[in-house]
Amino acid sequence: MGAGKSTIGRLLSQELKLNFVDSDKVIEERAGADIPWIFDVEGEDGFRNREANMIDLLSAEDGQVLATGGGAVLRPENRSNLQGRGTVVYLKASVEQQLERTARDKNRPLLQTPDPKAVLTELMELRHPLYVQVADIVVETDRRNPKAVVADIIADLREKQIVK
């Protein structure tokens, strides 16, 4: 959350001349409702079911940069689909950076709490090992210009001979 997935994903897709797809946006479009509403009505498990179905569908497509929600790694099938079907980039951001970037965002159901820093800390402890497990590339995003992050990703992709 707040690592820059949408911003960096869009820029990366432009540089690579690929389509950009945000799985959360596609979920919202298909549901006809925003993610906070889905969480309210179906709970987190209902949302995660929708997310797993969407990642299965989207990760099977070629020619795109796919941004997923931060919790997508919680499900083994998502980790398997992402890792087996593409190159996974972990945009690593500190809890402090995440807090700063999400402070005024009301579209984050997990952070609608009196202590969002505690929630982000707990989420990081749970998710970080999973991000590292599936990532082909890890890039720090704290206090960095998105274009510099994209340049690092492209350099890593070239080094791994994934792109020219």
Score class of each variant (00 low, 15 high):
D115P: 11
V65A: 01
L99S: 15
E29W: 00
T7A: 02
E29P: 00
G46D: 05
D22Q: 03
D136L: 00
I55E: 00
R101W: 15
A148K: 10
G70K: 06
N145S: 09
E159I: 07
I35W: 00
E140T: 07
Q112F: 11
E140R: 06
I153K: 01
E122S: 14
A148L: 08
A31I: 00
M54Q: 12
L82Q: 04
V132Q: 04
E96V: 11
R85L: 12
D34P: 10
R143M: 12
V149T: 13
T113P: 02
D62S: 15
D62L: 12
G46P: 05
Q133P: 02
I35L: 03
T121F: 09
I162H: 06
G2K: 11
F39V: 07
V149E: 02
R85Q: 14
A155K: 14
A60V: 04
I162A: 06
V88K: 01
Q112G: 14
S59P: 01
G46W: 05
K160I: 09
Q98R: 15
I38F: 01
A67P: 02
L66C: 10
E96N: 11
G70L: 08
S13Q: 06
S80C: 06
E42I: 00
Q97L: 12
G43K: 08
D115W: 05
M124F: 10
Q97G: 03
R79E: 03
E77C: 11
L82H: 04
I162F: 06
P36L: 04
R48Q: 07
A155W: 13
F20T: 09
A31L: 00
E77R: 13
L126M: 09
V134A: 01
A148G: 04
V149Y: 10
A103F: 15
N78W: 11
D115V: 09
A135E: 02
I154C: 01
I38G: 00
V73G: 00
